[in-house]
Design a protein around this nucleic acid. Structure first.
Lengths: 205, 205, 205, 205
DNA sequence: ATATAATCGAGACGGTACGTCAGGTCTTACC
DNA sequence: GGTAAGACCTGACGTACCGTCTCGATTATAT
């Protein structure tokens, strides 16, 4: 989360509760104010913490928001629904549900925007959010291969490329639908989208 | 661009040159500073214009950036490359090229993020950017139907839904690839993406 | 009032009504807003006149206010009340009454303050206000000499010096009482003041 | 000077040096620019202090200038020159010398003008400047009574009224001579003025 | 009649200062 | 050494007026 010097044994230890309180306060402020009107002073007040404490743990607003938003995506799961199509539909719907929550909408896009000019921030996002959820694609593919829905992938480089493509297509489409087009990614839309995606993957294999 | 009352015949008319200078200065500042460090005072200075002139024409930073970025996408074209796949690959590459320019990267995601909390802004984005480029999808489909690559669409509601889906998938995937994954949407990626998209559309029809 | 080139015979003549309307609007604004919050744009609006018209006739706020306030003091009179003491008391009370009006209070002190750094403005004040009311002192002395209350002044330079001193003492005391001490220059105070002034002049002659 | 809550024991204490630096910078700016062109931003810069620090301590330009000017008058003294007349002449000359300094000229009249529309400001002026120097009149009278030049005052209300009158006459005359008539209150003028004042007080007693 | 010319209203223009706010740092006293 | 509190410097905000300018439209005198 943030750099912590484990060697420091002296002095008062950092409050562990403060971390959680600050991240929760950040999400609360994102809901009420959105990214651009969120202020670190306000977050500190909400968390019952001094501004100094906050700055000792995070470098700035961007890093704080990334951490606060990243936690939201950890609740994504991939229960076995019996078929690849059903599995995908399920996780896409979960993803859409998270993006429908204001703390995710406001925060995620903003830090992505900031990351266009800050490589360290982009890397932090990739590691904390994107990479961490890549597991879902891998897990879904493995399960589909076990079911025989997908052939085993002989070339690992090609496999990685396909995973990336799928991830960009899934995440990109849902985000665009939700945040740009401004329409809900509801069951009907998810079903159409999944049909096209799977059909394309099958035909292009 | 901004509302202009054509009825007001009296008083000194607004300088037409100022509009262009301001939008150009905005893009220049986006390149050098990015959205979050862009200040309206700086834009005004670059444009050789007083801050008040800028505020007289745009409500704030968001509206200004939307207009400045929107102009970038007007250069998109759909030359006839002989097949639907080639047409799509061409326009997607153009789109990726625009998104690779820093003034687009910085500005676009930021205003989308802001739009999550501002319906008027989202509508402005939809009208100025999204809707305006929807023409490409329509034009491409018409051309493909004339070629016989796509069947004529009997149900207009279903047709509109498909256009929306395609747009979300194309725009979303390219944006996610470029801005989130942080990798170039190069020819190889575009070819893979187009193959999946077209294959999916064909199989799901 | 303001410079007018009598040689210009051609072109549309300046509206005579505008001058009066502007000065009246200025006094009205002084009453409601005071000097520091009075704006020329607002005065123009109140007078039903364009800002340009106002600037064509006055160089700025200070000059305008001097002219607007100067008119107030023209109503001072020196009716013959039978004795020098009564004459002085009468005119001092009139002066105090004018200074009690908000348009005079606000405007007069402000332009005097401005004049401390603007010689042209000080001269304008001296000519438009101070000098113009000096007549009262001269008239009062002449009348008192005719009555035999004051001896004829043999030395004109000494006479001028005395007139100046009286003027400074009268105007200064009333202004200080009204605007600094913040108490009314009522009949009782005026009687005490006049007694001291006349007694001093008599004993020092 | 400004309200200070002595109860607040926590947090970083206010810099004591800043107060003095700001008031000195204010007087410096008054000398160079005069009241109307003095800006708080400029004062802050001169004082080597942030604008916010200035606003944290003073409500606005008027309050700041009152405090800055008030300090000037604290140097007034009433050395024993042997007679009431000489004492008065001495202090009036000192007063005139202060009023001849540009920081006093510019500032004093301006805040008096502002005070015509702001009761709190008038009270601040009365307490910080007028009342504080009233000591001179009291001290001078006591000394004169000890010398036998003035009879003891039996009625305290009448005594207070006389002190007020003297103060209005002295301060008013000097201010009017200096700032309105625009002539120096030199020794000759002061001698004439004192002769009239004392003569009047003696004859009206 | 028709120039010619200055005025008028309206309102945009380049500036400057306003007073506020947030970011991020520093200085206290306390724990 | 961590912590709460809050003062501090910096720099941008969006607004208000300043005094100037540029319009089209009047309203006079001088042809």
């Amino acid at each position: 989360m943030q750099s912590r010097t484990p060697a420091s044994r002296t002095g008062r230890p950092r409050s562990a509760a403060a971390d959680a309180a600050i991240l929760a306060a950040t999400r609360e402020a994102l809901v009420e104010l959105g990214w651009s009107k969120l202020t670190l002073g306000d977050v500190a007040t909400r968390a019952g913490v001094a501004k100094t404490t906050l700055y000792r743990r995070w470098a700035g607003k961007n890093e704080l928001v990334v951490d606060a938003v990243a936690e939201l995506f950890d609740e994504l799961e991939l229960p076995d629904r019996g078929s690849l199509a059903a599995d995908i539909e399920g996780v896409v719907l979960q993803f859409a549900a998270i993006l429908a929550r204001p703390e995710a909408r406001s925060g995620l896009m903003a830090v992505v925007a900031e990351a266009t000019r800050d490589d360290a921030l982009r890397e932090r996002i990739r590691r904390s959010i994107v990479q961490r959820q890549m597991r879902l694609v891998l897990q879904g593919r493995a399960r589909a291969q076990k079911r025989g829905e997908l052939p085993p992938e002989p070339d690992p480089r090609e496999a990685a490329r396909t995973v990336d493509l799928i991830f960009d297509m899934v995440a990109g489409a849902v985000v665009h639908r939700t945040l740009v087009s401004g329409k809900a990614a509801d069951e009907e839309w998810v079903r159409s989208f999944t049909r096209v995606l799977l059909g394309g993957l099958a035909s292009s294999a």
